[in-house]
Nucleic acid binder design. Structure first.
Lengths: 89, 89
DNA sequence: TCTTATACCGGTATTTGTATCACGGTCGCT
DNA sequence: AGCGACCGTGATACAAATACCGGTATAAGA
């Protein structure tokens, strides 16, 4: 075993994470937020829809900055309710 | 062009980022911190040495939690001094 | 000296992220 | 109807992250 595939829990976490970003985006369009953050619109769409469940740290940092979100709050908000803390990627 | 290779600036940012983590780790061993965060020691070593310049968000979140670091401070600390804010990955 | 622990490095394997393109659908506007 | 902007899906392509293995080196300890 080399590169462990993402578990269903990790994918669910990715969906919750994307839902948080979409909610924070509000009325603004994907292309606008993506342009401000410096990522492609397709990448933002994949992250929001949960099809990219474990995006890179700096991608999220740029998006959080563009959306005015706190990284710490983001991380804690989408952590598993039951699990204390583990599950990285 | 499909997946733009990482720029030298992004790799330098990865080195600064890894140095921050290494400094925060202090006396603790790699395997201990990696085990607490739920990642492999090789992954932690690559991140600290800058050979993995754009790690995943949840990997960093788990490491920051294990090290007692703030994600927001981490992101702002390793941002480019000149650049206002861009550069994701 | 031998063992243990730690860290670095190279190679290998597999999965995933990021990006581009093409096509289809919906909505509002002229 | 036609046009354009936005969102969504699928395919494609390439680079990178993660993980495991073996080897090397160093330092501490029995």
């Amino acid at each position: 075993m080399v590169r462990t595939p993402l578990t269903p829990l990790e994918r669910e976490r990715g969906e919750r994470f994307g839902a948080l970003l979409r909610e924070a985006r509000g009325e603004r369009s994907m292309v606008e937020v993506a342009a401000v953050a410096g990522v492609s619109a397709e990448t933002l769409r994949k992250i929001e829809t949960g099809r990219a469940p474990t995006p890179s740290f700096f991608t999220i940092a740029a998006l959080a900055f563009a959306l005015g979100l706190s990284l710490d709050e983001l991380a804690s908000a989408c952590a598993l309710p039951e699990d204390g803390e583990a599950l990285s990627a």
